[in-house]
Write a protein that binds this DNA or RNA. Structure first.
Lengths: 175, 175
DNA sequence: ACACCCTATGTGATTTTATAACGTCAGCAG
DNA sequence: CTGCTGACGTTATAAAATCACATAGGGTGT
């Protein structure tokens, strides 16, 4: 079960504009729109404030569907007339991450839009080291070897980082 | 199956000097010695050069048995009369990580000594957010939900980052 | 209307983490 | 000896993240 994607801005050929989800094609324009709509709805339901900066950052992440560094986001915010200092970007990202609209990819010090907002979840990522595509899958933190080890010693897991680095199907094909 | 530890330098009481491995007590002095000896043996066997800086950094990591930042290491290197600029520490760490003597904890931008050097492995970590103790367990990257997802879409995993953040048994007890 | 508070934003400065670029030196092969 | 290679040292700089403080808008209670 894969839930993510890739973008036309990867190092692959610019002509390669067919967007991919889970390393497979998908309708990208609608996925930005529905992503924003979903977020807006959840914010209204939960009393969260999806302010213009936050909304804009989420939109950027949804458009890219790849990990984007905080400073890349900041550059675009500046171009759009928002504040231009790091805290502007970091605060918006903090909000999005805390509320599950985005995730931080620790391995890259960068951020992606959440591919399946809604219920709380512990995501796992596949990161292509060739084209930077990032796909999001579900992970089962409490299961498997790590969960067993944690239970065995009495470690209480609160959050997991699961990131696989490798080559996406698209880049394998191109070799 | 847990293979790591904790140190007397945690935020716990300084009197609490009993070292822990896998959040359980263990003979710490011997574990530094055997760690160094094992590394030395492997380097000789494989034609790697365990130079003084590299050896010192490994020793520091083994002594701590917690994630240590590159600059913390650099400070100690300086105190020991080695070079005092960042590349000195980063190069030694790169060597140790590339050869499996140490691991980078992405979540903390910091480094730990490998708790079970020897064969290649894909480690998983448990990180206590109270006392910074880090325990290393084996992970099974190709198994579980992520491995299944990767196979399903044709993603080729080369390396995995698996880090669980939470509370270690020792800190749970202290609450 | 007003004072008050809370949250979000904007900005300058700084800290923390990491790399680039270049010179030197020791060991060793030819 | 010459030239190569790998490790180390240093200066400088880049990249990522946070601190500290000022301002502004939206509510609330009076």
């Amino acid at each position: 079960m894969i839930y993510n994607n890739m973008t036309s801005e990867t190092p692959s050929t610019p002509a390669d504009n067919a967007d991919l989800i889970g390393f497979a094609k998908h309708d990208h324009a609608s996925c930005v729109e529905t992503g924003l709509a979903t977020a807006q709805a959840r914010c209204e339901a939960e009393g969260l404030r999806l302010t213009p900066v936050r909304r804009k950052v989420l939109e950027m992440l949804l458009q890219e569907h790849r990990a984007l560094g905080a400073y890349a986001i900041l550059d675009r915010l500046r171009d759009e007339g928002f504040g231009s200092q790091p805290p502007v970007a970091y605060r918006a990202l903090d909000f999005l991450v805390e509320n599950g609209f985005a995730h931080k990819i620790e391995r890259l010090n960068a951020f992606v839009a959440c591919a399946h907002p809604g219920g709380s979840h512990s995501p796992a990522f596949m990161i292509c080291r060739k084209c930077d595509a990032v796909a999001e899958a579900y992970s089962a933190p409490a299961k498997g070897a790590l969960g067993a080890a944690a239970r065995a010693v009495g470690f209480e897991i609160e959050r997991t980082v699961v990131e696989a680095e490798g080559i996406c199907p698209d880049c394998i094909e191109k070799r």
